[in-house]
Amino acid sequence: MTGPGGGAPPAEATSEAAPAPGGGRRGAGPRSIASRLMENRWAGLAGLAVALLAPFVNASPYALSVMTSAAIFVMLAAGLNIVVGYCGLLDLGYIAFFAVGAYTSGVLSTRLGLPLVATLPAVLVVTVIAGLVIGAPTLRLRSDYLAIVTLGFGEIIRVTATNLDVTGGPSGIYGIPGLTEGPVSFYYLTVLVVAVAVIGAARLGRSRLGRAWRFVREDEDAAEAMGVHTYKVKMAAYVVGAIWGGLAGVLFAAHLSAVSPGSFTFLQSALVLMAVVLGGMGSIRGVVVGAVIVSLLPELLRDLADYRYVAFGVLLIIVMLVRPQGLWPARPKEVAK
């Protein structure tokens, strides 16, 4: 749960402060070096501390369940942010990967009697395949076609899960084993996994591949001209997003010990998107905050059940009109090293 800068140990800052050519003429931001790192680091650590301390405030089964779900939702948002935020590809069926992960682990663990951890390799393989199968035909398309095709794929996965026997049909799968004993330890495990996933997404976002994603988002032609194979790069975003979604699906299956098609509707895809857009596309800190807001707000607004999704829809429009960069946007300004 740290920001893009937070993943770097202090050693990096010093090692990269080595003199580089032309140092004298660089537009400098000495003010920013320390303060920005601190800001990122503290933001991330503070978020993690809140997540770790929350059970000491309220450890009722209900509160733990809500918090666990929120953490899983953060992981989903971090995954979708790779696709939408970094790479600029609108995926409206992202929940399909969540479903693939949840069902794969659920089916394997209940049918073969495997512990959930043992299904992870299979989950990885299946989600990567799902990412490739969905991405291969669609990523060549114009971006807006991509959006609607992914929406269709989301539906296909859900309808397929409803129709097949192996997935338990409309009622789904029950009795999926947990990953730990008891909800408290599961909560901590989830927070740990999600924190690693968020840091991982942030690190990827800053790497060569992550830059290539953003080149594609900013200008595909210019990216190609620089030697970026845009199709492969988009595919990579898609597959990495799929893995994040699939692993979140395993956590989900372990959390509820049951999966059914009703959990993987377009509504869910739209909510994850809402989290990413609200927090700030491409900004990992923003997306984490956005996900926490989107997953916890309905719990606080139970009385307004009917109107909260209306509000989400209106909010999407308002954010795009008024503040398209989101609540806590990614800064194009980078830390001077």
């Binding site: 939408v84 609108l90 989400f312 829809g313 209106v314 795009m320």
Partner: peptide, 18 residues
């Protein structure tokens, strides 16, 4: 393009749940 598409998704959502 992305902003416009997201806005359209928001509009769809608002209409449905409205």
């Amino acid at each position: 393009r992305l902003s416009l598409l997201i806005t359209a998704v928001g509009a769809s959502f608002a209409l449905e749940y409205g």
